[in-house]
Amino acid sequence: MFNLIRRDAILQKRQILIIIPLIVIFIIMDKHPSFTFLIASIIIPFNTFAYDEKVETNILLNSLPYTRMEIIASRYIGAIVYMIASIGVTSLALFIFKKPFTMTDIAIAISLFLLFVSFTFPLFYIFKQGYISMVIFISFILLAAIGPAIVSFLAEHLTAITDFITNLSIPTLYIGVTLVIMVCYFISWGITTVIYQRKAF
Rank of each mutant, 00 (worst) to 15 (best):
A85F: 12
P100F: 03
T104Q: 12
V117Q: 11
I106Y: 00
M134T: 14
A93H: 00
S133I: 04
T104R: 10
S133R: 11
F101N: 08
F101V: 03
I106D: 01
I77E: 04
S111N: 08
L94K: 01
G130R: 09
S111G: 12
I110T: 15
L115W: 02
I136V: 15
F97T: 08
L112D: 01
F137S: 14
F113L: 10
F95G: 14
I138C: 10
F127S: 10
L114T: 10
L112H: 00
F124H: 12
I71C: 09
A79S: 15
I72R: 01
Y76P: 13
Y76G: 09
I136D: 07
Y82W: 12
T120H: 02
L115S: 12
G88P: 07
V89R: 03
F121D: 11
I77Q: 00
I138A: 15
G78F: 01
F116H: 06
G78R: 03
I108K: 05
T120C: 13
S86N: 02
Y125L: 07
I80G: 07
I71A: 05
I71P: 05
S111C: 13
I106R: 03
Y125I: 04
F95A: 14
F101M: 04
I77G: 02
K99R: 15
F113G: 03
F124W: 14
I96R: 01
K128D: 11
V135P: 04
I138K: 11
V135A: 09
I110G: 07
A73G: 02
K128N: 12
G78W: 00
M134S: 15
I72N: 08
M83L: 13
D105Y: 03
P122M: 02
G88K: 07
Y131K: 14
I106M: 10
F127P: 13
A79E: 05
S111F: 01
I80F: 07
Y131W: 06
K99C: 03
F137N: 14
L114F: 10
I136L: 10
L115Q: 07
T102E: 05
Y76M: 12
Y82M: 11
F95S: 13
K128V: 10
L115R: 00
Y131Q: 11
I71T: 10
V117N: 09
F113K: 04
T120I: 02
I110Y: 00
T90Y: 01
I108C: 02
V117D: 03
V89W: 00
K99D: 02
I87F: 12
S118Q: 07
I96L: 13
S74F: 03
F127Q: 06
G88A: 05
F95Y: 08
G130A: 11
S86F: 05
F116Y: 15
A107F: 10
I84R: 06
I84A: 14
S86W: 01
L112N: 08
G78P: 09
I84K: 02
L123G: 02
Y82P: 06
Q129K: 15
L112Q: 07
F101G: 09
G130M: 05
